[in-house]
Design a protein around this nucleic acid. Structure first.
Lengths: 208, 208
DNA sequence: GGCTAGTTTGAACGGTCGTTCAAAAACTGA
DNA sequence: TCAGTTTTTGAACGACCGTTCAAACTAGCC
């Protein structure tokens, strides 16, 4: 018993299988959160979508909150990726901003399938909430700097960047409250309309 | 005992006192909902703010959900009043829309003190939820018609009215997520900036 | 001052739901 | 096929919290 054996590191196949199962759980949870919100979805709800008992979930996540937390981390990862891409693919602030809006809308509709994740931050423990909020703040700062840059360059009107960015994020996050994947409004059309509207509202009225 | 006496109708003074107490409870509840959200605030939380035990609340409301429901009704009442005023005080669609946005922002910051009421609709029972959603839909329709009118009159760009209105309401409702009464951003400045930005984004770029 | 109606309280109940745990089942790899 | 590991299960616990209720307290009113 007291052999010096290190716990076996699992085989790649097992590892991969587990990773996929975790992703499945997160996906089921996200759907449940979308339909009922975090607090009213029970672990049974999530488990039922996977054809399994709720106790099985504990093999993958230590508690319910961790499931929510991982959902947040994933979507914030996408946002971060999005920001990097905006740097390389666009030049002017207006273009970058439009790109970020379109991509954020895409994340909302595709990855999250309209799940109101951003609404559930208060459900996290203080430490995790702080982490998620910090990441969100970094994102907001990028957007504010973009607006500021646009104003300084004479492209944008002299708005309060903070207020403008809150308006933009509000419009985007609110998507979770009405968007339905099977609905009439098409996702990429939505992204373009939002980008036109929200960037257009910033542009100076009389060009040059 | 079996005298034919009808249960006394309470005196005006008593009636008024009770009305005020109900309002106090709703106010305390609204603050609690703002800080913790509906599901995580307990009746104890609300009662504690009033220096009273939770069971006292049952003298005024039959259950927790009814408290949330009355909060919704009150704020929807304000919205309805706001719509009527917009009819009489403004002419052109752009003006009406700007007026409604400013007023809605005022309701969000003053009456609700930033409480994210609009986020808590799913917590209501099906019937009540339906009622609140119906009222909200009527409001959205007013806004959509306004946008449509603006487009037809050549004032606004040819956007999808549905999408534009969702963006506007998202921006406004999101205020509850970041606005703090004691914060740096002043409430009426906020309303004006929102109106300028969100109506401006709809206007045709090259006026005549 | 005393009767009545209005208000608050403390104790307790009961349901829901997250969580624990030991045992069973299914799967992996030789 | 079989030992070892991973995954799932069922039963049960326990905490939290909305709710009930009878009793105590308070305020209005003649």
């Amino acid at each position: 018993m007291a052999d010096g054996r290190v716990p076996n590191t699992p085989s790649p196949h097992i590892r991969e299988k587990r990773r996929r199962r975790r992703a499945e759980i997160l996906h089921a949870a996200l759907q449940a959160f979308r339909e009922n919100g975090y607090h009213t979805t029970t672990l049974d709800d999530i488990a039922e979508r996977l054809g399994v008992r709720k106790t099985a979930l504990y093999h993958y996540f230590p508690d319910k909150e961790s499931i929510l937390y991982e959902c947040h981390r994933e979507s914030l990862g996408e946002i971060a990726r999005m920001i990097e891409e905006a740097e390389t693919c666009c030049e002017r602030p207006a273009e970058k901003l439009a790109y970020l809006i379109r991509e954020h809308v895409r994340v909302m509709t595709e990855t999250l399938e309209g799940s109101p994740l951003a609404f559930e931050v208060p459900a996290l423990s203080p430490e995790r909430r702080a982490e998620i909020i910090a990441a969100r703040d970094r994102y907001e700062r990028v957007l504010r700097d973009l607006v500021l840059e646009g104003i300084r360059g004479g492209e944008f009107q002299r708005v309060d960047p903070k207020i403008a960015v809150f308006a933009i994020l509000g419009a985007i996050n609110w998507i979770a409250r009405w968007y339905r994947p099977e609905g009439a409004i098409h996702a990429d059309e939505l992204g373009s309309e939002f980008a036109d509207y929200l960037v257009g509202g910033l542009m100076c009225r009389q060009p040059r």
